[in-house]
Amino acid sequence: MNQTYPFKFWCKQQVNRFAPGLFFIGLVLLWECICVFGKVPNYILPAPSSIITAFLNVEFSRWMTHLWATLRVALMGFFLSIIIAIPLSIGMMRSELMNRVLYPALIVIQSTPVVAVAPLIIVLLGTDDPSRVLITCLITFFPLVVSTTTGMLETPPEMIELSKSLRAPRYRETWQIRIPYAIPHIFSGLRVSITLAIIGAVVAEFVAAEEGLGYFIQFSTSFFKIPQAFAGLIFLSIISLLLFKSVQWVQMWLFPWSLPKKK
């Protein structure tokens, strides 16, 4: 008994460790089997093997060109929206008037389909990066404004009383209390925004671009190269996932205290 217990425990540990990976591999194998034995043609659902072949058939340097084009726009749009959203949230938190004037405007911007105004943006800013960055920014900044504002408003009221009782200047109340308290909220906003940034960059590439993963997918589809389009799509999802993870890493690295406590 005494000897089997640690072994069982060890087995359980290993299962927990490898289960997600094994599940994923199993899923891919199942997909492959359905495609091969079900004789599903490539243009309906390409088999994983033909997606991998399509991926390898595109030169590595081309992948990097497209990746860099999308990543560049997504990150510039993402950082631009941080630069806009956080000061805006601070302003809206501090001024009731600003809040009442801007909030409806923000909701209008958010609920306007960007694709509908994209041609206008292209006419105003041209067909280069600035247009695409703006389109990305329009998609990403709203969740950030909402999460930052919510976070700052959820500061414990007694902390604000402490600040008032010290007669500290208001900017220190904002910087030393409200913003740090909003960090967990800001980061959940950032996690949403970074994945939206990729979607934004891809949407922008659908409107006007000569390179980028979104352009590549659209292009592959126009030539009915479905496996190649899927390869682009999967590459894109992997990038999204990595960016999402990076936001978590940055939070772990800079603000470890802001993570939820493990039970």
Binding site: E161, S165, I183
Partner: peptide, 11 residues
């Protein structure tokens, strides 16, 4: 002032 909760800044 000492408040109901300690209200320490977690960072």
């Amino acid at each position: 002032i000492v408040f109901q909760k300690a209200n320490l800044l977690p960072w």
